[in-house]
């Protein structure tokens, strides 16, 4: 199994709902708390496992605003795990989820240096590294109804831009989406082979423009129409 997310850049509206839901769930989840430093002060700072950035792609008048939510990509070739000196970072054999054992981490930051996606952040109060768990404490929880065994970010997304599934199964929804919509990996040149995949915005059908015409042309069109009847 290779669990991960597909993010649809066509429909994401950049509401930050996934980031908020993630923070809410994970501050009391297996790796919790997910603390903040000075949360109500002048210069608040804190650990988030999911961040949304907004880009302008191409130039006016063809420019488009793209919202790009980013969390851990659960890379196939996870350098963050290789560099970890304590064995706190590990990638699960059974489903490919990359996790940090909070009891082993010494807070050297090396894994965050090795991650190209900015997926790892130090918890300011605990001093250990925090990262997306793909809500490992939700997706296997048999006490939850079956359709709720999904990461919190996927559950909350109001536009259904986030899809969770198994990339090893060619018939899963995520695999189909990646095939049909030509899903892309971010920064593939580094060779980390990230599992999370991004669906590029669709090419919208061209909207017909109203073009004012001369009176003569309009009359000619009307005459042609009448004659043809």
């Amino acid at each position: 199994m290779k669990l991960g997310l597909v993010v649809d850049l066509d429909t994401c509206v950049g509401c930050h709902g996934c980031a908020t839901a993630c923070k809410q769930w994970n501050t009391s989840g297996t790796i919790g708390p997910l603390s903040d430093e000075n949360p109500y002060g002048k210069d608040p700072n804190g650990a988030w496992l999911n961040r949304i950035r907004t880009y302008e792609v191409d130039d006016t008048p063809n420019s488009k605003t793209v919202n790009m939510p980013m969390s851990c990509m659960h890379c196939d070739n996870a350098a963050c795990v290789t560099v970890c000196p304590t064995g706190a970072s590990y990638k699960r054999e059974e489903d490919g989820i990359v996790l940090v054992d909070q009891d082993k981490c010494m807070g050297c930051n090396l894994c965050s240096w090795a991650c190209p996606y900015g997926a790892r952040e130090i918890d300011p109060s605990q001093g250990t590294m925090k990262k997306c768990t793909l809500c490992v404490d939700r997706i296997y929880d048999e006490k939850l109804p079956e359709d709720e065994r999904k990461p919190a970010c996927v559950m909350t997304c109001p536009t259904k831009s986030r899809v969770f599934g198994d990339f090893d199964d060619p018939n899963s929804e995520v695999s189909k989406l990646v095939r049909d919509r030509a899903g892309k990996q971010l920064m593939p040149e580094l060779g980390y082979n990230p599992v999370n995949t991004y669906l590029p915005p669709r090419n919208k059908p061209v909207v017909e423009m109203y073009e004012p015409r001369s009176v003569a042309a309009s009359v000619k069109d009307w005459v042609n129409k009448v004659i043809s009847r």
Partner: peptide, 20 residues
């Protein structure tokens, strides 16, 4: 960002204060 055929500019970092 995966947009290799056009210019890309950051509009918003997504957080109003500092981060790790």
């Amino acid at each position: 960002t995966g947009f290799t055929q056009a210019n890309v500019r950051l509009l918003d970092q997504g957080h109003t204060s500092n981060s790790f």
